[in-house]
Amino acid sequence: MSDLEDLQRIAQRHLLEGGPLPGALGTALSPPVEERWGIYCEGYVLRLVASLATTYDGLAARLGREDFDRLARAFIAGHPSRFRSLRDYGAELAAFLRARANDAETRLQADLAAFEWHLASAFDAADVTAAGIGELAALAPEAWPSLRFRAVPGLGRLCTTTNAVAAWRAARAALEADPAAGPVPGPPATDTDPVEWLIIRPALETRFRSLPDDEAEALDRVLSGATFAELGEALAARHGENAALAAATWLKGWLTEGVLLRV
């Protein structure tokens, strides 16, 4: 190992984990080297906290600055960045929160983090031209059974079991009135029946809506690679002779919304 490699490994380990200060650092000036190196250590944490507060601004507003800062620092301690862009940092925050959740409020926070991560992922996902109704209408009828689709880039699917989206709406409204708002109490946290959500960004604006359970199941089948014919078969058990009509109705809606790409 070269001296430079050794120095960088030791310095990085200290910055992430603390411990003895790298001996290669020196200064004869004030402030002492410990305080100087501390500027880097704190700068590292502050940048990641700021990045998380941007990605999860609804959660940050609900918690308020101090509680969000505490949460972010706990998360950062176990999750060093492996990304060139801070925009990509923090995907695991929802799982981190879910593992610690023990009441409706903390379950809401985990749902809210998952929801906001999907919003962030959709925000700058690749621009594509989604499959449209006109394109499919031009197909011969015999081509329909074998049609396959995949999700447009950035499409988000998640299931919430709390009123997290209502909390997000309250936080957004407060942030639009005052970007420094927080803590924003919003609606009290409540556990709910599972609600399925679809998030897409068909042009520049991100959109989301809840999905009825059977539509969510059908969409997930299509996104998993099921053909139109296979979708119809899967729906037959629940919808009987109306399965094909249900499949066609949903497909028309997804094509209008810009949810799918042809495979």
Binding site: R9, Q12, Y40, R47, L48, S81, R82, F83, L86
Partner: peptide, 13 residues
């Protein structure tokens, strides 16, 4: 180093 980005502009010797 080692796959981690500290997002700090650390000087070289």
């Amino acid at each position: 180093t080692d796959g981690i980005n500290l997002h700090d502009l650390l000087p070289l010797p």
